[in-house]
Nucleic acid binder design. Structure first.
Length: 269
DNA sequence: CCTTAGTCCTGCATGC
DNA sequence: TGCATGCAGGACTAAG
């Protein structure tokens, strides 16, 4: 499930290859991977040069020569791979034929991934909260929250902070010693500051480890990330906590599983 | 305002 | 062996 570090890693691999290349032709194999109609996609994308590639939250963004923007959200199982041969992947949803004989395939087994065309860079992703890579920025955002919502639910809310998903929310809360059900407005400023420092550290080290590989996830060059070796709680229910050997718990929160150590992360309210 | 449930999806693990 | 069931969840929507 590509979250911020995985998307960052993907963009780092895409940028040097795609910058300045021209989109010669696109093919759409699964209609619901696109938002808008096929003709509009062809009109807007084909013949355009890729001027810039960057990440915003969990979105990959492309600026085109016509000043329009194109985004890809990987959903749960999205992958972008450079495909040199004629091999037709079973889960191929979209194909980009670029200049210099480069072909980029969007493969998405579970079909949760979505692409979209935006009129301009200005109106791109205005609903997203700030990037969670700077601790002071995060603290400014989190300290002013008046909500009683569970902190885990807040961290997953892309309108508050953009890019954190289930894995890194659980890992950040573990490192900050905060129970995922803790009410956001009940967390004292010291703990909140700690959380604000842990989030960018968790994300930055995941980026350094070229992302977390859970089952299907692959980088554009087909390699695997290695951050999964460094997880403390995510996916480790019933295993011993690395700090205190207490059994890691798993609960359901907002329809998602949350993993935590009840001793290291005591409940606050 | 906030939570819950439903929707979209496929592959894999489990159980009988 | 094979079939049914449940689980994984990002983002969105509707209902309570």
């Amino acid at each position: 499930m590509p979250e911020l570090p995985e998307v960052e890693t993907i963009v780092n691999q895409l940028t040097p290859v795609l910058s300045g290349k021209k989109i010669k032709r696109i093919k759409i194999f699964w209609k619901r991977s696109i938002q808008g109609d096929e003709d509009e996609y062809k009109r807007t994308l084909e013949g355009q040069t890729i001027m810039n590639v960057w990440r915003r939250g969990k979105y990959i963004c492309f600026l085109l020569g016509n000043r329009k923007c194109f985004t890809i959200h990987m959903g749960m199982s999205g992958k972008l791979i450079f495909n040199e041969d004629k091999h037709f992947h079973k889960h191929l949803r979209m194909e980009f034929d670029l200049s210099h004989h480069i072909r980029l395939d969007f493969i998405d087994m579970r079909k949760f991934g979505k692409t979209r065309i935006w009129k301009s860079e200005k109106e791109l992703l205005t609903q997203l909260g700030p990037e969670p890579l700077d601790s002071q920025n995060i603290y400014r955002t989190l300290r002013k929250l008046k909500t009683r919502r569970a902190i885990k639910s807040v961290l997953l809310d892309q309108k508050i902070l953009a890019g954190i998903g289930n894995i890194y929310a659980d890992e950040s809360l573990f490192r900050a010693g905060i129970h995922p059900l803790s009410s956001a407005c009940q967390i004292d400023s010291k703990k909140m500051k700690r959380l604000s420092q842990e989030i960018p550290q968790v994300l930055a080290s995941a980026i350094q480890n070229i992302g977390t590989t859970i089952s299907q996830y692959r980088l554009p060059n087909q390699l695997l990330g290695k951050n999964q070796q460094f997880l403390n709680v995510y996916g480790l229910a019933d295993k011993a906590c690395v700090k205190c050997r207490t059994r890691i718990k798993r609960i359901r929160l907002n329809g998602r599983s949350s993993h935590f150590c009840s001793k290291c992360q005591p409940i606050l309210e």
